[in-house]
């Protein structure tokens, strides 16, 4: 299998590959919480995954620390993606908020969260995005914020549309927000995607399905939260993020 046959693969063919890997995973009976790097149904991964196991190493003090971001770095207005232009973007206004914690439940405080996304029509403000959906002059689709003292982040944006891509014939990505996160350690660095509940494209998407474990996949799906919905204004989604466990010795008063 090479990346050159990507254009000719059908959704049925990709779905069969996804099903075969899922069957093999279920049969093995070993829980995998991480995303697979070697996942051929996502054609671009074929030449871009390491074939050797990662070298196990104890982090040094450097990697047990994280870069520090603060008010010099970020304007609080950057958390609202709907006010970056003169007019209002088109689409379904929404908020997404949640807590960033480490594996031991400690909040990741005052740390950088970055998001980027397509507009309501599924189009990115990116030169390489050739999807013939309209650009929205009032929407860029990039936001940043710092978590608060409780590890909570919050963005206001519009719901992104699904979009086609060239992995195979008639391939469509489920709607998603891209997230970039930092923890209290460099070892916790995470880039991921948040999805919306009940998307019919989940089963068809080789990027989402590269997480072979159903419970692990579900951790990328936000929850609709009516308490976060604002009357006459926006729909509320909640999505909590757990970064990989810290080796750091807990400080007194750290554990909530």
């Amino acid at each position: 299998m090479t990346s050159s046959d990507a254009a000719t693969a059908t959704q049925a063919g990709i779905s069969a590959e996804i099903a075969a890997i899922a069957h093999e995973y279920d049969g093995a009976g070993v829980v995998e919480t991480a995303t697979r790097l070697d996942y051929p149904p996502y054609r671009s991964s074929i030449l871009r995954h390491p074939t050797k196991a990662a070298f196990q190493l104890d982090p040094e003090e450097l990697e047990l620390c994280s870069p520090v971001f603060g008010q010099r770095d970020i304007d609080p207005l950057e958390a609202d993606l709907t006010i970056q232009h003169r007019g209002e973007p088109i689409g379904e206004r929404m908020t997404v908020s949640g807590r960033v914690t480490d594996g031991d439940g400690r909040p990741v405080r005052h740390q950088l969260v970055e998001i980027w996304q397509a507009n309501a029509g599924g189009r990115y403000v990116h030169q390489r995005d050739q999807h013939p959906a309209p650009l929205d002059p009032n929407f860029t689709g990039m936001g940043r914020c710092l978590t608060d003292g409780d590890g909570t982040y919050r963005f206001t944006t519009i719901k992104p549309g699904a979009y086609p891509w060239r992995n195979h014939h008639n391939a469509w990505r489920p709607a998603h927000l891209h997230f970039s996160l930092f923890g209290t350690e460099f070892t916790q660095r995470l880039v991921t995607q948040m999805y919306f509940p009940g998307d019919p494209l989940f089963a068809l998407d080789p990027i989402f399905q590269a997480i072979t474990d159903r419970d692990a996949r579900d951790r990328l799906v936000a929850t609709y939260d009516h308490d976060e919905t604002r009357p006459e204004w926006s729909l509320g989604y909640r999505w909590d993020i757990v970064l990989s466990g810290s080796r750091r010795t807990p400080l007194e008063g750290d554990v909530e």
């Binding site: 390489r128 995005d129 689709g141 891209h178 991921t192 990027i207 951790r219 757990v242």
Partner: peptide, 19 residues
């Protein structure tokens, strides 16, 4: 230990956002 949130590819369209 709470299970970690899995990663996903940065994708092709980060150029207007991360740099």
């Amino acid at each position: 230990m709470t299970a970690p949130t899995p990663g996903q590819t940065v994708g092709p369209f980060f150029g207007f956002a991360l740099p």
